[in-house]
Simulated assay, not measured.
Amino acid sequence: MTLTREWTYDGLAAKVWEGEEEPARIVLIAHGYGEHIGRYEHLAARLVADGAAVYAVDHVGHGRSKGERVLITDFEDVVGDLHGLDDIARHEHPGLPVVLLGHSMGGLIAARYAQRYGDSLAALVLSSPVVGRWDAVTQLLALDEIPDVPLDITTLSRDTRVGEKYAADPIVWHGPFKRPTLAALDRGIDAVAQGPSLGSLPLMWIHGEADPLVPIEGSRSGVEHLRGPDYLELTWPEARHELFNELNADAVMNEVVAFIGQKAAT
């Protein structure tokens, strides 16, 4: 049975999923652009079943958190927000190993977090991360006006129900990018590229080879810069952007849970 608890800190909406027994590890989740932590219920439940306490927060401007919708002016601040959640999790479960998992924009946040606080982590998992090169940012910033074009929901998953549910979700952002957020993304990608490698921190990179939103080859250079000797790369030929919502999501989650369990054993 998965138990949940919600609260706010500094105007940010946070949630924890836990089992009835004492956890063996902590997993922090950093979600992607425009979405919210409620879209990770199934992943959290799978991690809890394997002994984790799972903590996540709606980033500023997202979900139920404070701020103008999808407006992020500095990803260093978002990393700081996530570190605040880390502090809460460690206070509630002292002494447990902590793993960070980031998806898409959350992968950028997680990568930068690991560069700043990697010594405190047991492992890092990057899912379809915005690191290395993301041509969409450069192309959009070059335009005089950001087009108000909704996300093509077919890019998320081969499972059509995923896109339909996304389109109907009232706290998912369905409007255009905002220029300050794009500029912050551009600076964040550069900060990761200019920052240190992760050395001995165990790193898992998962990506769909048919991901049209964050193409795999753009992310590869960023991951290669980050990775150290303890590294696992798993890609799936026909999978799109949201691997945890793909047709093979169970297999993906099994791989991630196994990696986390191995690297964050107590």
Results as ranks from 00 to 15, higher is better:
49 A>E: 10
42 H>I: 02
47 L>V: 03
34 G>I: 01
77 D>A: 15
70 V>K: 01
21 E>M: 10
67 G>C: 06
34 G>L: 08
73 T>W: 01
57 V>H: 03
75 F>S: 14
89 A>M: 10
83 H>G: 07
76 E>P: 06
28 L>I: 10
76 E>C: 12
67 G>M: 08
88 I>L: 13
57 V>C: 08
15 K>Y: 02
69 R>V: 07
19 G>C: 13
43 L>P: 01
65 S>G: 08
41 E>H: 15
92 E>S: 11
72 I>R: 09
18 E>S: 15
37 I>W: 04
37 I>P: 13
16 V>G: 09
90 R>D: 00
57 V>A: 08
43 L>D: 04
90 R>Q: 09
29 I>K: 05
87 D>V: 15
23 P>L: 07
14 A>W: 00
16 V>A: 14
14 A>N: 06
54 V>F: 02
20 E>N: 13
72 I>H: 00
35 E>Q: 10
67 G>Q: 08
58 D>V: 07
70 V>R: 05
39 R>F: 12
48 V>K: 02
34 G>P: 03
20 E>V: 15
79 V>Y: 13
43 L>T: 10
80 G>F: 09
18 E>Y: 05
61 G>M: 06
64 R>D: 13
90 R>I: 04
94 P>Y: 01
92 E>R: 11
38 G>E: 08
46 R>I: 02
77 D>Q: 15
94 P>D: 07
88 I>A: 13
91 H>G: 06
15 K>V: 15
85 L>W: 05
53 A>L: 02
13 A>W: 04
62 H>T: 11
82 L>E: 11
67 G>E: 06
19 G>L: 10
80 G>H: 12
73 T>F: 04
13 A>T: 07
74 D>L: 11
22 E>K: 13
66 K>W: 00
57 V>P: 04
61 G>W: 00
48 V>G: 08
